[in-house]
Amino acid sequence: MFESYGYRRVYTPWFELLGSLERGLSGEAQARLFHLVDPGSGEILVLRPDFTAQVARMVAARMSAGPRPLRLAYHGRVARAVDALGRGLSSRDLFQAGIELIGAAGPVAEREVLTIATAAFAKLGRTLTLDLSHAGILAALAPEGLDAPTRLALSARDEVALAQRAPQLLPLLKLHGGPEVLRRAAAELQGAPRSVTVALEELQGAIDGLTRTPPTQVSVDLAEVRGFGDYTGLVFRGYTEGAADAVVSGGRYDRLLGRFGKEEAAVGFGIDVGAVLLGQTPPPRRGVVIAGQPGDPASEDAALAHRARGEPTVVVEPSSALAYAEHHGYRLLVTGDGVERSLP
C-alpha cells in the first residue's frame, strides 16, 4: 500500500542494545520499554517499542547524503510494557505499519502523510477520522512542562482536576470539534504567546486542501496531549469504528534526527494493525480447491492453470475436498470431471 505512494520498505532489528536506541526515545517511551539481558555479555537489550527512533538512526547513519525528501515505510512487531500508571488495555505485542517522510517541512508534507493514512483505510473499505493537535500549543501555555497527573487531567478533559492543577489550561478543554475549532481557538487564546498563533496557522495549513481524494474526515482537539513525546508540531491520531481507541498515531518530529546526527524535518505515522483488523469483517472467499489425487497429472495441470490466473489453488483428496474448501474459505471447488461448484 505505502509503496504505491513511493515509500520504500526499510528493515530494522526487533531487539537491540538499550544504549544504541535510548537517545532516540522520549522519557515516556523509555518507561514503556521491555528489557532483556543478553545472556552472553550481560548487557541490557530492549525490544523495539516502535520504528520511528530506529528509522531516524538509520537515516542519520546511512542516508544522510542524497536528495530529499526520503520516503520510508516499515511494518513489523513492536513490544510495549504497560505504562507506569497501568493504563492502556491493548495487548503489549503489537503489529505496526507506518511511514516516515524525512527532509520535508511544511503543510504539503503533512497533507501527504495524512492523505496516505486515510487512503490506507479506504483500501480496507474503512473510514478513518483524523484528530489533530499541535505540540506547540502546550509548549507555549505550559513552557515548564506538565507533571503526569496534570497531563492526565488535561487529556481526560477532567475540568475538576485541571482547575486545581493548571487552571490556565482550562480553555483547551472546550477546543475540540470540527476544523472550525481553530477559529474559536484563535479568539479564545488571544493573549497567549505568538507561538500559539503559529501553531494554529500550521494546523490550518495542514487541513486546507485535504478534502479531495480520498475524502478525509478531520477533527481538532487541542487538549489531546497523550504521547506528545518527541513531537514538535502537528500531532494526530486516527479513529475507526470497531476500535476502542486510536489506531493511528503520528506527527511531526523535527528534532529527533538531530539526536543521531544532523537535524532534519520529519513527519510520519504508525498504524496499530491488530486493533484495525479486530473490527474488520472476514475477507471474501477466494481461491480454488481441485478434488483429485495429489500428484495426478490432470489435477496438477488444472491447478497450474488456476495459479497462472492468480488464484491460490490446492489439490485435495476427493473425499475431503468439499470440507477443506468450506473450512478454509475457498470460493470454488472443481471436481474430477471438471464440474465447478461455487461456495457461498
Binding site: T129, D131, R237, Y239, E241, A244
Partner: peptide, 16 residues
C-alpha cells in the same frame, strides 16, 4: 468523590 460523566475516547471522536 463525586459522580462523573465519562466517554469512550474513540466514540468521542467518531460520534462527537
Amino acid at each position: 468523590v463525586s459522580a462523573r460523566l465519562i466517554f469512550n475516547r474513540a466514540a468521542a471522536k467518531l460520534r462527537p
